[in-house]
């Protein structure tokens, strides 16, 4: 059984203009020690899908259905529909998160020691000094020098990269089995990005965590992930191992995404190709493929099918899935 198993997860927001299907029935599994990258544009549902089962979306006007099971020390638990107090005990303990902007993600008024200790105290009934020891241990582990002294420092006294290291230390305080990294390097300098990604990879090996890496940066994905889920308009449109995806992308959207990434091994006369058009409004989705209005290959599918029928996720080869009419009937 997988460590984290997401099945037919749907997230709908009620807005004054109608219902927005932010996540429209996605399913995936994450195994222990594996890094799953979730790639997509803003509004594709990549963040929302993970915030949803963590219970971090605003209540009231949000409807979450489907099933997300997590393997814990006490056996498998279903996260969807869990009582707030029960999901709170999972958050930060079994599943930890780090976010995009480490400046705004740390509380500016409290010392980092305070914030680290608090994360430990929330799930362990131990003396504060024990939590403090744990904080020093983890700060050292993520590469903060003089950890004991730095506990008293405030977030604004750290650089961006150091702050993200503090965030990572905070996420690991309770030895989580899953780490969700939501655009962890987007707000950082390119040189620091690489350091942070390497740090996450090292810690993942050390603690045997599963990492869910949410990003729009395919450069980040190439070096860090084992498997990639590509999302578009709330749906999973392609899923494959990272090597397979980069070598043989199938869905035209994935092809377009890869074409828009600058690469060292490409002739420098080549221009980057942009995907024409804009992502669709999630409120005005037609019955057809959500990508059809921007797709350059829809004419290859007979009978205007792309505009009228939403394609299913089909297996192209072992472990490679794609949601595109082009490949129907060509599966192995």
């Amino acid at each position: 059984m997988s460590l984290l198993s997401v099945h037919d997860l749907r997230v709908e927001f009620a807005t004054p203009d109608g219902i927005v299907k932010a996540v429209d029935g996605i399913s995936f599994d994450v195994e222990r020690g594996e890094t799953l990258a979730i790639v997509g544009e803003s509004g594709s549902g990549k963040s929302v899908s993970n915030l949803a089962y963590m219970g971090l979306l605003p209540k009231g006007k949000t409807k979450i259905t489907g099933s997300v099971t997590l393997e814990t020390d006490n056996g498998p638990v279903e996260l969807i529909g869990m009582e707030p107090e029960d999901i709170r005990k999972i958050r930060g303990k079994d599943i930890a998160m780090i976010f995009q902007d480490p400046m705004s993600a740390l509380h500016p008024f409290y010392s980092i020691g305070d914030q680290l200790v608090e994360a430990h105290q929330a799930h362990n009934k131990v003396e504060k000094s024990v939590s403090q020891e744990r904080a020093i241990e983890l700060l050292t582990l993520v590469g903060v020098a003089d950890a004991k002294e730095r506990l008293r420092a405030y977030p604004h006294q750290f650089s961006g990269g150091m702050r993200q290291r503090v965030m990572i230390a905070m996420a690991l305080m309770n030895n989580p089995s899953v780490l969700i990294a939501d655009e962890p390097t987007t707000a950082l300098d390119v040189t620091v990005q690489a350091q942070i990604l390497k740090l996450i990879a090292d810690l993942q090996k050390k603690f045997k965590m599963a990492v869910i890496l949410i990003t729009h940066d395919l450069g980040v994905v190439a070096g860090a992930a084992d498997r990639v889920n590509v999302m578009y308009a709330g749906k999973l449109v392609e899923s494959a191992s990272v090597d397979e995806l980069y070598a043989k992308p199938k869905m035209p959207y994935t092809v377009g995404l890869l074409g828009s990434v600058p690469r060292m091994d490409r002739p420098h006369e080549d221009r980057l190709t942009a995907i024409p058009g804009q992502p669709p409004s999630l409120m005005k989705l037609s019955g057809g493929c959500a990508f059809a209005p921007r797709c350059t290959r829809k004419s290859e599918v007979p009978g205007n099918k792309c505009e009228t029928t939403s394609p299913e996720l089909i297996q192209i080869s072992t472990g490679h899935y794609s949601r595109c009419h082009l490949y129907e009937g060509k599966t192995k």
Partner: peptide, 23 residues
């Protein structure tokens, strides 16, 4: 964002409001 972080850490709602939000 730091309130979302506090929630993601698994802090109780009382602590989030009384400590993180109010300050």
């Amino acid at each position: 964002d730091y309130i979302r972080t506090a929630r993601a850490k698994g802090l109780s709602e009382g602590l989030i409001l009384g400590k993180h939000t109010l300050r």
